[in-house]
């Protein structure tokens, strides 16, 4: 247990030293404050519109940004240590590969969590202090947003580990990370939309909406739509509108998206020769 924390605290400190935490926090704070107050500028009004609009546009931007940040933070975690030679030394130390992997995950997960709390917390505080919304409602919505955003980040850290342990060079890992990002953020939903157009009612909506679970970015948005009780679901998410997916099951799906890639990483790690 203590070794898990030793590795985790090193990863966390690295994140602090490399300015990751400050950079992610700033990005989150700027885009959440920006969306809250200038999100409706296109329609000619400036200023806070509503909690629903804010959370929904935040979620739409977060699904693009958070996976990218998490992949960038984590793609190098293992392949980097293999490349610079420190992995050889680490593996001769009295620490199992599973603990090493979980320790690194814990450290980077805390980086994502702390940045989300600070960055999105700032926007939540600004909205609440200005008295533009019901405090309880805003706190609930933002708490869920922070939790789900962190989960989304952790999922992409876990996916980055699979990449980082499967390749021999950093540059390959970076390329693959980009492919993974592109797939989940753009390709998957476009594919689903195309399927909707083509099938023309032949496939059950039940089945189609369950396909959303295979894209963690969709699950993330569903959680936030659910929490805010959104009146209108956007794009492919309409498939799930009124399906009554409860938050708990959505959170379970997110957890599965963390556990399975971590388990795969652990297996690859154990088999990989130094």
């Amino acid at each position: 247990m203590s070794q898990l924390l030793i590795v985790a605290s090193k990863e966390f400190k690295d994140g602090f030293r490399n300015r990751w935490i400050i950079a992610i926090t700033l990005i989150y704070a700027i885009f959440s404050l920006g969306l809250a107050y200038f999100g409706s500028a296109a329609s000619g009004t400036v200023g806070f519109t509503s909690l629903e609009t804010t959370i929904i546009s935040l979620a739409s931007l977060a699904v693009i940004l958070i996976p990218l940040i998490a992949l960038m933070l984590a793609y190098n975690t293992f392949v980097g240590e293999y490349e610079q030679g420190t992995m050889l030394l680490l593996l001769t130390y009295p620490i199992s590969r599973t603990v090493l992997l979980l320790g690194k995950f814990l450290g980077q997960a805390v980086i994502m969590l702390v940045s989300a709390i600070l960055g999105f917390g700032v926007a939540a505080m600004a909205i609440i202090i200005n008295g533009e919304v019901d405090t309880t409602q805003a706190l609930t919505a933002f708490s869920w947003f922070i939790v789900s955003a962190s989960l989304l980040g952790w999922i992409f850290i876990a996916l980055a580990y699979v990449i980082s342990l499967s390749v021999k060079e950093k540059s390959q890992a970076a390329g693959l990370a980009l492919v993974v990002w592109f797939f989940f953020v753009l390709v998957y939903d476009l594919g689903l939309l195309a399927l909707l157009v083509v099938e023309n009612g032949a496939i059950s909506t039940q089945f189609l909406s369950s396909l959303l679970f295979f894209n963690p970015t969709d699950v993330f948005r569903l959680i936030n739509y659910q929490v805010i009780n959104a009146s209108e679901y956007s794009g492919v998410l309409q498939l799930a509108q009124g399906n009554g997916n409860n938050l708990f099951s959505l959170l379970m799906v997110m957890s599965g998206w963390i556990i399975i890639p971590l388990a795969i990483s652990s297996i690859i790690f154990k088999k990989r020769e130094v």
Partner: peptide, 20 residues
């Protein structure tokens, strides 16, 4: 073998560390 691993020291060829 974790106890074993506490009892030896190893210096790899071209040792490298966390540069930062």
């Amino acid at each position: 073998s974790q106890t074993y691993r506490r009892q030896f020291g190893y210096l790899p060829e071209n040792v490298s560390f966390y540069d930062q």
